[in-house]
Amino acid sequence: MTTTDPREMSGLELLRYATALPMDERAPIIGDLFKFSVDELEEGRVVFSLPSDPAFANPLGSLHGGACATLLDSVMGCAVHTTLEAGVGYGTLELKVNYIRTVPVDGQTLTGTGTTIHVGRQVATAEGQVVDASGRLVAHATTTCLIYR
C-alpha cells in the first residue's frame, strides 16, 4: 500500500488499514459494539471472532440470533469487499441464516468465516459459517451483495 487515502485503496488494503487503527483514531463500527476480533483478512476470505457475552443474550438467556447474523453478515460482506478495487463499494441485498445450535452466553469465543463464491461486475455472493470454541457449527449463511461501481 502506497497511500493512506481510503478512496485510493483496494477493499483488502482498506480493511487492513482500518482494522490496524486504534479505536480512538477511526469512526466507530458495528464490530466495536459486538467486540469483534479480526483474525484473518485475505482476498476473498475473512475470519472474525466475538465473545458470547451475556450482554448479547435473548430473553431465554442464550445468545441472541442477531449476534450470529451480524457476525455472518460482516464476514461475508467483508470477504466480498476484499476483492473490490479502489473506490468500489457494496451492500447486502439478501442474507439467509441457518441456526444449528443454541449458544450459551458464557464468554466462549465464536469464530465466523466468510468466503466469496462469485464476484461479478454488479453482484457478488458469499457463504459463511460460525463455529463455537469446540469447533462445532453454530450457524451458516449465504449472502448476495450489490456492487456499487
Rank of each mutant, 00 (worst) to 15 (best):
V46E: 02
S74R: 05
E40S: 09
E40Y: 03
S37Y: 02
T92F: 06
P51H: 05
S52T: 07
G44T: 07
E40K: 12
N58W: 12
P51L: 05
G91M: 14
G31P: 04
G44M: 04
L93W: 05
L60G: 14
A69E: 01
S37A: 12
E43Q: 12
C68A: 15
L60Q: 15
L93H: 02
L60W: 13
G65T: 09
H81N: 14
D73Y: 01
L63M: 12
D53L: 07
V88H: 04
E43S: 11
V46D: 03
V75H: 01
E94M: 09
D39G: 06
D32P: 00
F48E: 04
F48C: 08
V38P: 02
N58P: 08
G61R: 13
V47F: 00
G44I: 02
A57I: 12
D32L: 03
L50N: 06
E43R: 13
K35R: 15
E94D: 14
A55G: 14
V47K: 06
L95E: 00
E43I: 02
T70V: 09
D73V: 02
V88K: 11
G89Y: 04
A67D: 07
I100L: 11
L60S: 15
L50T: 13
F36M: 08
T92S: 14
I29Q: 12
N98G: 06
E94Q: 13
D53I: 07
A55T: 15
G31V: 10
C68Y: 03
G87C: 08
E40T: 11
E94G: 06
T82F: 02
L63H: 04
F34G: 02
S62L: 15
G89N: 07
I29E: 09
I30H: 12
L84A: 00
L41V: 02
V97Y: 03
L33R: 14
R101F: 09
V75E: 00
A67I: 11
V88W: 04
A57F: 13
T83G: 08
Y90W: 11
A69I: 01
A57Y: 13
F48T: 03
P28A: 12
I30T: 14
D32R: 00
G89H: 07
F48W: 11
N98Q: 13
C78L: 14
P54K: 09
F48G: 04
L63I: 10
L33W: 12
G77S: 10
Y99E: 06
V75G: 00
I100D: 01
G77Y: 04
E42P: 04
C68V: 15
C78E: 10
